[in-house]
Design a protein around this nucleic acid. Structure first.
Lengths: 236, 236
DNA sequence: ACTCCCTTCGATACGCTGTATTGGCAATAT
DNA sequence: ATATTGCCAATACAGCGTATCGAAGGGAGT
């Protein structure tokens, strides 16, 4: 009955003790440095070399604390989960909103998060604590059955992650071009106008000219509201 | 009234003509090779060197057809849009479902798509055609106002992209470990059981043991249903 | 107290990436 | 026939993750 994985995951492997005390390195310090770097310069800037340099160490030194770069990324995600307050609220809708907002805000604080949240749940310690708190709050707020609770979380989290990627993607594009969305549409104008001039795309034209321009938060809230309405309807 | 961007985007730049005929390279052939490679070995395997090698060319030769690797990725996305059938259906719900399914299936056929769909709409020719068809079909199916139509598309697409990432992420993890989800949970067992043994995570335990196991398509459908119900409710 | 060993660190190195640069060649224009 | 243009391949550079390895150092055994 072999259950132990061939290589134990980062969550199981204990942090190696410090022997001498020349420079007090630790997993936590490494992760903090990586997060800071990612916040400041983007995920692409997080290289083992740069993280190590930030800590006055050679790149290879990090390999005593992390097994691989991917593990470092996992640890970064868990570090963000540790920042997110447990969802709260009196009704289940409030709790679900609180859950969504907590993660969304973390994702806007750390724009690289959306790139690392690929769906499969992370079982880092902070993520587990956050998940437990979420489920508990939902039950306490009135959702009885575990299936209902799980469906709600899954669906909200799915929408959430999509929205986060949209939003972060827009921010990045804006920053890259120094233009906000309206300006960016104008920059695209030569190409788009040419298409629209053909008259082949009347709906796109109408959308671009007449559609209401909602800010990201409004859009997020709107979709989340639809989702919760749909779930509520399924409860009765 | 300067509207022309400093560097014209790939959509505007004409494909260079072939002069001599030593090896008939073209933007389309390059993109096809890249897509094939990405399908077979993942997006990380798409390097200009490998794509070029596939076409019996040196890496730098590609730069006559694409300005940068990112442009190649944009072209790949547009190539996928070209595969997606225009949404159809008699009611707007059907059309919305058709829209979602079309993109979802493309995303499952080309698992790298989810990584490139970051939110900001791509204005490649195929993407524009697909978008126009989507909006048109929704109006024809009964949604009158452009704002309603746009909100519906935005919200569904947001959910869709989140779901696609989840699903693709799971597939990748399974393939990487050779385990399906249930087995994977068992592989995680040492770590998870240790956590659960503390009794600190009763909800997580319950979820893992008692919650219904839905397959990805069911889950997708469930969430999409909630969303459409919520939208429908807002129409009245 | 001395020696041995085992751990850990830094340096080096490999194979890979995207792409800037450069030099030569071949086809076209005069 | 000559001048010019434009393209392609080769080379080069800076960066990446990480495998390997020699040296150094502290802890343990005698």
């Amino acid at each position: 009955m072999r259950q132990v994985a061939d290589t134990p995951s980062i969550w199981e492997r204990p942090e190696p003790p410090e022997r001498r005390a020349p420079s007090p390195l630790s997993r936590e310090r490494i992760v903090r440095a990586a997060v800071t770097l990612a916040d400041a310069e983007g995920l692409d800037a997080v290289s083992l070399r740069k993280v190590a340099a930030e800590l006055d160490a050679g790149p290879m030194r990090l390999y005593r604390y992390i097994g691989t770069k991917d593990e470092l990324l996992d640890l970064m995600v868990d570090a963000v989960y540790a920042e997110i307050p447990p969802p709260s609220g009196s009704g289940w809708r409030e709790v679900a909103r609180s859950y969504a907002h907590g993660i969304r805000e973390a994702g806007l604080r750390h724009e690289w998060l959306a790139d690392l949240l690929d769906g499969r749940p992370r079982f880092g310690p902070a993520a587990v604590i956050h998940a437990e708190a979420t489920l508990t709050a939902l039950r306490a707020a009135g959702l009885r059955e575990i299936d209902t609770i799980m469906s709600t979380v899954e669906v909200v989290s799915t929408y959430l992650r999509g929205a986060l990627r949209t939003e972060v993607g827009e921010r990045r594009a804006e920053r890259a071009s120094g233009l906000d969305e309206r300006e960016w549409q104008h920059a695209m104008a030569p190409h788009l106008l040419a298409m629209f001039a053909t008259g082949d795309y009347p709906m796109m034209s109408e959308a671009m000219h007449d559609a209401e321009h909602r800010d990201p938060t409004e859009r997020f809230e709107l979709g989340l509201g639809y989702l919760l309405d749909g779930i509520e309807q399924s409860l009765s």
